[in-house]
Amino acid sequence: MFVAADSDRVGYLVSLLFHSSIDVRVDSAALIEIVFAGIRSLDFRAQISDARKIFEGVVRLVLGEAASAQAVKAGAAKVLIDRLVEFEKCDTERVLASVELLRRIPSGLAAFAARSLTVPTLVIIILTISDRATEYTAGALLSLCSNSELTRREAMAAGVLTKLLFLVQSYCTERAKRKAQMLLKLLRDSWPEDTIANSDDFACSDVVPYCFCS
């Protein structure tokens, strides 16, 4: 709390996220994560931090494969997911682009899977921000669900089925639809028996070719 109690010290740590040295940026991000983990009051967090500067610094860390691995070690996955719903549309797209980059490396995918908020937050984002955001989100969910049965159950509990069924029939990008189709096929065994996906009406719908194609 010694650092957290002084906004100037926190501000200095945030400024180090933009240092020319990647090692300094990584160490700063890791220290910021430790400081904020010890603060339970959301109001206090808001008072001592500049969310936009922290966001910009973390996004810079994610650029490049080597830097991405270091960003994961510094706690980037937690920062991105925990702050995702707080940003404006353009910033949300950038966060999701960063998530898309990090989930491509094993340590990044594992870090996102370990966060209980990851799947519910991503499900909420589908079809609510932009086509690009939906595309990034569908890709991230596909990777996460491909890797874990537990994650698939979490996605179903968060309401992903309804979102995906709307997505494949929407005017979203073809890439987003393809990812949604793959995710629906992956989740097929997890569908509850009483959902529309298992009803006779669904079996005759236009969505079936997307979900059950070989």
Results as ranks from 00 to 15, higher is better:
Phe18Gln: 12
Pro106Val: 13
Ala77Val: 04
Phe55Arg: 14
Leu63Arg: 04
Gly108Gln: 09
Ile129Arg: 14
Asp27Ser: 10
Ala138Arg: 04
Val95Ile: 13
Ala4Ser: 05
Leu127Gly: 03
Ile39Arg: 03
Leu122Pro: 00
Leu16Ser: 10
Ile22Thr: 00
Arg60Ala: 06
Ala46Asn: 15
Ser20Thr: 08
Phe87Ile: 08
Leu80Cys: 07
Leu42Trp: 05
Lys89Gln: 06
Ile48Pro: 15
Glu56Arg: 13
Ala5Tyr: 04
Gly139Leu: 12
Ser20His: 10
Leu61Asn: 13
Glu135Met: 08
Leu96Met: 08
Ser21Met: 02
Ala46Trp: 07
Asp27Trp: 01
Ile48Ser: 13
Val58Asp: 11
Leu102Phe: 01
His19Phe: 07
Thr128Gly: 09
Val72Phe: 14
Phe112Leu: 13
Leu122Trp: 01
Ala30Glu: 01
Pro106Trp: 09
Glu33Gln: 08
Ile39Cys: 03
Ile81Trp: 14
Ser41Met: 05
Ser68Tyr: 11
Arg40Pro: 06
Val79Ser: 03
Val59Thr: 01
Ile32Cys: 02
Cys90Val: 11
Gly75Asn: 05
Val95Asn: 13
Thr137Ala: 06
Leu96Thr: 09
Pro106Phe: 11
Val10Arg: 10
Lys78Glu: 08
Asp50Asn: 06
Val123Leu: 13
Ala114Met: 13
Ala114Trp: 08
Ala111Met: 10
Val123Asp: 14
Ala77Pro: 07
Arg83Ala: 15
Arg45Ile: 02
Leu96Phe: 10
Lys89Ser: 09
Asp8Val: 04
Cys90Gln: 10
Glu93Gly: 04
Ser49Pro: 02
Val99Thr: 00
Ile22Ser: 08
Ala113His: 02
Gly57Val: 07
Leu63Cys: 06
Ala30Phe: 00
Glu65His: 08
Leu17Ala: 09
Ala111Gly: 11
Ala69Ile: 00
Thr92Asn: 05
Gly38Tyr: 08
Ser41His: 07
Ser21Cys: 09
Ile48Gln: 15
Arg9Lys: 05
Arg60Gln: 10
Val119Phe: 01
Leu101His: 15
Ala30Asp: 02
Ile48Val: 10
Arg115Ile: 15
Ala138Pro: 13
Ala133Asp: 05
Leu31Ala: 09
Arg94Gln: 04
Thr137Trp: 14
Glu100Cys: 00
Glu100Asn: 13
Ala69Tyr: 02
Ala133Phe: 15
Leu13Asp: 10
Pro120Met: 11
Ala5Asp: 13
Val99Gly: 02
Ala66Lys: 06
Ser28His: 00
Ser21Tyr: 12
Arg52Asp: 11
Lys89Leu: 08
Leu42Pro: 13
Leu13Thr: 00
Leu122His: 04
Gly38Ile: 07
Arg40Ile: 06
Lys53Glu: 12
Val119Ile: 05
Ala110Phe: 15
Asp27Arg: 06
Lys89Gly: 00
Asp27Gln: 01
Cys90Ala: 13
Asp91Tyr: 14
